[in-house]
Every structure is written in C-alpha cells, then in structure tokens.
C-alpha cells in the first residue's frame, strides 16, 4: 500500500487529506487522526474462549508507525475505541507498549474516549478528552445526529460494497457530505458496517454522502448509486 497518496476532501470549509491508510491528515495543523484502533481485540476474544491470533495489536501499531513516519505529525489524535475493552491497555505486551511510547515521543498525543474505552488507558501517556475542536472542526468518537457542521467522527467503521458490471468488492471508506466526515476503522481486526445501513442514513438525511474508498494506492470517490447493501 502506498501511504500519502490521499485525496483532499473539504469538511465545513476545511481542507483534510483522506489517506489510503485510513488516517485523516490536517496539513494546516500537522494533525493526524486515526479512529477505532481496537487494540488488543484479539486477546479480548481470547478471554472469552476464542483464541484468535494475538498479532492484531502489533499489526495495527506497525501500520500506524508507517503512517506517522510518513506524515511526521506534531499531533496525533486517536479518535476513540483505541482499545477494545477497558482492560485492554493492561494486557499490552511490553513490546507494544514501547512502540506506543516511541510513537508518542516528541509529539502531542490525544486519546479521545470511545464507548469501548471510556477512560484513560492504563499506564500510557497522552491527554484524554471526550471532544476536541480544531478551527471549524469538532472531533469526537461517536457522530451525533443533528448538529453536524464540521464533525469528524469514527465509531461506525464504514465500508462500501461497490458493485459494477465487473464484479463487487467491499472496502473500508471515509464517508462525507462536505459538512461532516466519518473515518474508517484503522485497527487490523476492526470489522465494518455497510454505509447503506440505516445508521448512516440518520446522519446524512438530506443528500447521500460520497464514499471515499481505500484502494491499494489511491482513494476512489464513489457515489452512493454504486454502493450496495451487503
């Protein structure tokens, strides 16, 4: 995958870069936003008897490291559900903990709270807040129906199923109508919710949004007419 070959989208008049990695980059404030990392989801399942491979955290962090190395942001915002459950941060391996500390080094780091991780992560640096404003943008985990202007959120893990005469495929995507933007999930084990789900309908009641779909080396902007339910 090529990182940095993103596409500019405009949200509430602010220019944002939707990157092929699934991160949103605000060049003006050198801020990198990633949502729904769901770290330690593997071990969260293991606790309940499903021993799925424990490599998701390392995979997600490696991915994040490549993105941070590329953009060299001065501020990183993890937009909620950074950890899959409340004890997830305690289960981080020493190695993964060190990777996070390395990534946090010499830059501002903000953990926005999410429904999976409503409190500060155990033993990790970084500011914790529910919501943050950057210019005309307001960043929070869960999108709110109604007041939408400038909202940057995650939570829903949008994916688009794109169908053409050649076939169909399902990929993660950014969803935006120019007033707000929903980020795709960044975590290796984070599943997806089809953007034809009614949860999205409630957020974009007036006009159908555009799906900015993550391709291998660029972002493809696709109209809702090409997107189908699962």
């Amino acid at each position: 995958m090529i990182i940095g070959n993103g596409r500019e989208i405009v949200v509430a008049g602010q220019s944002c870069m939707a990157d092929t990695s699934g991160a949103l980059y605000l060049a003006g404030s050198r801020t990198l936003i990633v949502s729904d990392l769901h770290l330690e989801k593997g071990s969260s399942f293991a606790r309940r008897g499903m021993l799925i491979p424990p490599y998701d955290t390392v995979a997600t962090l490696m991915h994040l490291k490549r993105v941070i190395t590329h953009f060299e942001p001065t501020r990183v915002i993890a937009l909620g559900d950074s950890f899959h459950d409340r004890q997830a941060a305690e289960r981080l391996s020493e190695h993964n903990r060190e990777t996070i500390e390395e990534l946090q080094d010499k830059r501002e780091w903000i953990w926005v709270t999410g429904n999976h991780d409503p409190a500060a992560p155990y033993g990790l640096a970084g500011e914790v807040c529910d919501e943050i404003r950057i210019g005309a943008l307001v960043l929070r985990h869960e999108p709110q129906a109604g007041a939408s202007l400038g909202e940057i959120a995650g939570h829903l893990h949008p994916v688009a199923r794109v169908v053409t005469a050649r076939g169909s495929l399902r990929r993660r995507c950014f969803v935006s109508d120019g007033t707000r933007c929903i980020l795709p999930a960044f975590g290796a084990y984070a599943g997806g919710l089809n953007l034809r789900d009614e949860a999205f309908g409630a957020l974009f009641p007036d006009a159908p949004p555009t799906a900015h779909v993550l391709g291998r080396d660029r972002i493809y902007s696709v109209g809702q007419d090409s997107c189908f339910a699962d």
């Binding site: 169908v163 050649r166 555009t210 493809y220 902007s221 109209g223």
Partner: peptide, 13 residues
C-alpha cells in the same frame, strides 16, 4: 486488478 472496479465506479461518479 480489483481496484479497476473502484476506478470504474469512481469514473461513474
């Protein structure tokens, strides 16, 4: 390449 599906859909947009 699968991405051609996306390219086609994008072209339609």
């Amino acid at each position: 390449a699968q991405d051609e599906i996306l390219a086609e859909a994008a072209a339609m947009l």
